[in-house]
């Protein structure tokens, strides 16, 4: 332990450097949003966030986030189950494709959906025949949100299920349990914290997505504007107080996400300790 005691001045220099760096880069922008949002008084703040278009934008963000979390949860559980409990060819390829969406730029994500559903695509006449418009409309926004958060839940579940192995499920299956019973009684207790963690991360990213959604949105106020797009619109219209007021909602959600994350980690750790 001698080693750790010996570095008085260096230790405090490094701690100061880290604190200053994080205060300037992380805390200052956060505090600044809150202060600017409230700069014209609480009444102006409240009227900004209860503006008709702000509420509609928030509502669309909630819808897109809901669908992204739902689809990615179903996908995440199915993919994690299938990739960790069974041996088959092409596993590596599937996991590469699952991780792909987070490595491409959000703008490129938007672009490939425009190419898939836009006017020049062979799908366009078919969908148009059904009266479905995907790009520059709500379905496009939802698809883009699903895409950018695609691996978030499966990526949390796969390591946990890999570490857990297949013995318990095999035992349950030998004793005659069905698929859903095994999942609910055997697998779910192991993965519940990882699943919740994935859902939290997915929610955070989904509600804040800007680039991909920006490509696919028609930018119609009250129709295809999500909260981040609405913020952009206000900011570009020099309504800074309004933009920062709307941002403050997302800031609060971001802080909630960070707190939830710590809580989940803490609880998950506790469960692990009990298991041991």
């Amino acid at each position: 332990m001698e080693l750790r005691k010996n570095n008085g001045p260096l230790k405090w220099c490094m701690i100061t450097l880290v604190v200053v760096f994080l205060a300037v880069f992380l805390l200052l922008p956060l505090v600044y949003i809150v202060i600017t949002a409230l700069s014209k008084g609480i009444d102006a703040y409240i009227s900004s966030i209860t503006d008709e278009y702000a509420v509609k934008a928030a509502w669309l963000t909630i819808r897109a986030t809901f669908w992204a979390v739902l689809i990615n949860t179903i996908f995440g559980i199915a993919a994690a189950w299938c990739l960790t409990k069974f041996a088959f060819k092409g596993k590596k390829l599937i996991s590469t494709f699952i991780d792909l969406p987070v490595t491409v730029s959000p703008i490129i994500a938007g672009l490939i959906y425009v190419l898939t559903f836009g006017r020049q695509s062979f799908l366009y006449p078919i969908l148009d025949g059904w009266g479905v418009q995907v790009i520059f409309a709500v379905p496009g926004i939802i698809l883009a949100t699903i895409f950018v958060t695609f691996p978030f839940i499966s990526r949390e579940l796969i390591p946990v299920l890999t570490a857990q192995g297949t013995d318990e499920e095999e035992a349950a299956a030998l004793m005659g349990a069905g698929t859903f019973t095994i999942f609910r009684k055997v697998t779910l207790p192991h993965i519940k914290w990882a699943l919740l963690y994935g859902v939290v991360l997915c929610t955070a990213r989904a509600m804040g997505e800007f680039g991909a959604v920006s490509v696919l949105s028609g930018h119609l106020r009250g129709k295809t504007n999500t909260l981040p797009l609405y913020i952009e619109l206000l900011y570009q219209g020099y309504d800074f107080t309004g933009a920062f007021a709307a941002s403050s909602i997302l800031v609060i959600l971001a802080v909630v996400v960070l707190v939830l994350r710590l809580w989940i980690e803490h609880r998950g750790q506790k469960d692990l300790d009990i298991d041991k």
Partner: peptide, 28 residues
Amino acid sequence: NIIPGFGLSFGITITILSLIVLIPLCSL
């Protein structure tokens, strides 16, 4: 392998993966 649910989970995985990632990628 005696664990059930391969067909179901594989089916869901491939379907959603195709719709969200593979088909858009092919169109690119």
